[in-house]
């Protein structure tokens, strides 16, 4: 290999592993997960004792003591309140991106602790948030829209020292892990759908909408009375999940995957009322969008805005 070739190879190696990527998506995911968990704590604020404390539905006997949870250390309601309120504070700090390296670890611990306490109110979104937040502890989620972002930019001259290089590498691998986790999720879910008789025969959506708990009554009438919606919804949900990992390999089909899956989750949020589940899934999909994609979207958005401004100026 020539000296030039070796140098290009090294540059590519450096570019691949040591240039932090997907920083905007990771920062937006931090904010979104922070908001979702803040919503989770606040919307259940008056029901918190019933759902999670030892005086509520899970008494000392029924609590899962095998899994780790900060709430398991004491049965006192004062202790419960301290942990609950500290968790809210940590969530706010995390979403603001304050001392993010530390708060992301604390946020993971508090989120894991609350979501482990009551499986009766849980869903697949809670499961995913735990998996993704584990890897996000190792990622740089503070490069944008955070208190720490200015400090991060100021350190740009030190990015070639070994410590910063290792941190960049770990960030990139953590993002890859999040994306692989998402791919496994969609592929597995699609795989199970293929095994199901009602999914195969194209009527699973019809049957899901017969369950009052999951059926938005306005959407239910529309779906149940139109075979085309049942058919399209059924096969689209299988197709988008099975193809999701493969669509990510190409820059252009990747957009198809992201848009398709976004429509799918918006449909679930509205049609089935699984609000936080859909928000968590949509948030996780932010990690697939690259910084260049975000910049491109921003510039498109700005040009549309300026066009509107110009048009309104001309009218005036």
């Amino acid at each position: 290999m020539t000296l030039e070739g070796s140098s290009t190879l090294r540059q590519r190696f450096h570019q691949l592993f040591y240039n932090e990527k997907f920083l905007i998506g990771a920062s937006l995911a931090r904010i979104s997960f922070g908001f979702i968990m803040l919503y989770y704590y606040l919307i259940h604020y008056t029901q918190r004792y019933f759902i999670w404390s030892y005086d509520g539905i899970f008494n000392e006997y029924l609590s899962d003591k095998e899994s780790f949870s900060l709430y398991n250390f004491s049965t006192s309601s004062m202790y419960f309140d301290v942990i609950y309120h500290v968790s809210i504070l940590i969530t706010i700090l995390y979403l603001c991106g304050y001392k993010t390296r530390i708060t992301s670890i604390l946020f993971f611990i508090t989120t894991y602790s609350i979501l482990q306490r009551n499986f009766l109110v849980a869903d697949g979104g809670d499961n995913l948030v735990i998996n993704i937040l584990f890897f996000l502890m190792f990622a740089n989620t503070y490069a944008y829209f955070s208190f720490d972002s200015a400090k991060w930019r100021a350190q740009s001259d030190r990015r070639n020292n070994l410590f910063h290089l290792v941190m960049a590498l770990i960030h990139n691998i953590a993002i890859v892990a999040c994306v692989v986790q998402l791919c496994i999720l969609y592929l597995t879910a699609g795989f199970y759908q293929l095994m199901g008789e009602s999914w195969n025969s194209g009527v699973a959506i019809y049957y899901i909408f017969q369950v009052d708990e999951y059926a938005n009554p306005f959407i239910r009438d529309l779906i149940i009375n139109h075979d085309i919606f049942i058919f399209v919804g059924n096969y689209f949900s299988i197709l988008i999940k099975i193809s999701f990992p493969f669509l990510l390999f190409n820059r252009y089909t990747k957009y198809l995957a992201v848009i398709g899956i976004a429509f799918f989750h918006i449909g679930i949020a509205i049609g089935m009322g699984l609000v936080t589940f859909s928000l968590i899934m949509l948030t996780s999909d932010l990690l697939i969008i690259s910084d260049q994609d975000f910049r491109w979207m921003r510039s498109k958005w700005m040009s549309i805005l300026s066009r509107f401004k110009n048009m309104s100026m001309i009218r005036k």
């Binding site: 894991y112 697949g124 995913l128 998996n131 584990f134 759908q193 199901g196 699973a204």
Partner: peptide, 19 residues
Amino acid sequence: GSLFRQNWHLFSPEPVTEN
């Protein structure tokens, strides 16, 4: 363990159909 435990059945192979 409980940290990486996951389940992605999500209404499959057969979805919930009964009330």
